[in-house]
């Protein structure tokens, strides 16, 4: 872990990387729906006002407009909160972006419960699932500031549509500097032999902590940061499952449709092993501080340790 760096939110990395892309490439345009300050697209807006389009509170219009920009040869980055980017504008993302396979980057901030006090209306717990369901859509959930920064820079060259989820809270650094590429999107951050902990987003740091805790209990946990949820790196995930023989997945998302399901699908086809899914158990969120919510919805290091022990106890 790059512990010496002060935690920073992944949405801030989006803002800085977008600004950098604007400097490097004239055909990058950005859109936002009255949340430029929160999603951090505002930095780009300030530097390149002629290439920034704030459509107002009109997410559906924004997504279809982004499709139009892509058809016109631009590389559009469209940002708003995850709940609105996916839920509110789902049909526009589906029909105008995903199906025609247009290079629109849907960059959604405020993923998950850690939105906090705004409550369930603003907490996106199903966005990864919604985006994963769309053919052609690449789904990326970076784990820290640097990985987000690298992912956004790399996205410029990516073909086809892409969904990038960032978060509101400050998050510890895991990568000492922005990686040049996400690669195939599954980084083994720690090797282990008894159980695999496959996590994404803010849960990766908790998976590393859980592995440390499990070590004290003589359990060797492997930690894999799965930053590309789709297309998932089948080889790395299956290899880890084969090596350890069981797993826990962890995500700030519903246990239905997200990373947990993606890993289960790999397991079912290539390496059937027991898997425990740590995630939101098919309920909506509520108001509270991010830490209180992570505790209440069982998304802490301790809960991950507990689930790992449970999975191990039930036999491989």
């Amino acid at each position: 872990m790059a512990a010496e760096l002060k935690p920073r939110a992944t949405r801030e990395a989006y803002g800085e990387a977008l600004l950098e892309l604007g400097k490097r490439h004239d055909n990058v345009v950005a859109l936002d729906a009255d949340l430029a300050g929160s999603t951090k697209s505002g930095q780009f807006a300030k530097a390149f006002p002629e290439r920034f389009f704030n459509v107002g509170v009109a997410e559906a219009n924004m997504m279809a407009m982004a499709a139009g920009f892509a058809i016109g040869g631009k590389v559009p980055y469209a940002s708003t909160f995850a709940v609105f980017a996916t839920g509110r504008a789902y049909d526009q993302v589906r029909q105008s972006i995903a199906q025609p396979r247009l290079p629109v980057r849907v960059c959604a901030s405020h993923g998950g419960l850690t939105v906090g006090e705004d409550g369930c209306t603003h907490q996106s717990i199903e966005d990864i699932g919604l985006m994963r369901l769309l053919p052609n859509m690449k789904v990326v959930v970076p784990a820290d500031f640097n990985q987000t920064y690298g992912a956004v820079l790399e996205s410029y060259k990516t073909e086809g549509p892409m969904y990038i989820r960032t978060g509101r809270p400050k998050t510890p650094f895991l990568y000492p500097e922005p990686p040049a590429t996400l690669g195939r999107g599954a980084d083994v951050l720690r090797e282990g032999s008894d159980i695999s902990l496959l996590a994404c987003g803010i849960m990766v740091v908790r998976a590393l902590e859980a592995a440390e805790e499990l070590k004290k209990r003589d359990i060797s946990a492997e930690v894999v940061n799965v930053s590309i949820i789709k297309p998932i790196d089948v080889d790395t995930v299956a290899a880890s499952l084969a090596k350890t023989g069981c797993a826990v997945t962890a995500e700030e998302h519903s246990i239905i449709g997200g990373l947990g399901d993606a890993v289960q699908e790999v397991a079912a086809e290539y390496c059937p092993v027991r898997i425990g899914r740590l995630g939101i158990k098919d309920v909506f969120g509520k108001s509270g501080t991010p830490d209180q919510l992570l505790e209440e919805f069982h998304l802490t290091t301790e809960h991950m340790v507990g689930l790992a022990e449970q999975v191990l106890a039930s036999g491989k």
């Binding site: 609105f84 839920g87 705004d118 409550g119 509520k286 509270g288 209180q292 209440e296």
Partner: peptide, 25 residues
């Protein structure tokens, strides 16, 4: 907006007496 209070950050018709619809989006 506090955890376990019925007064959610955005109105919730199932939690707060007198709120007619849930809104926020």
């Amino acid at each position: 907006r506090k955890i376990d209070c019925h007064l959610q950050g955005h109105p919730d018709m199932n939690k707060t007496r007198g709120v007619e619809i849930s809104s926020g989006s």
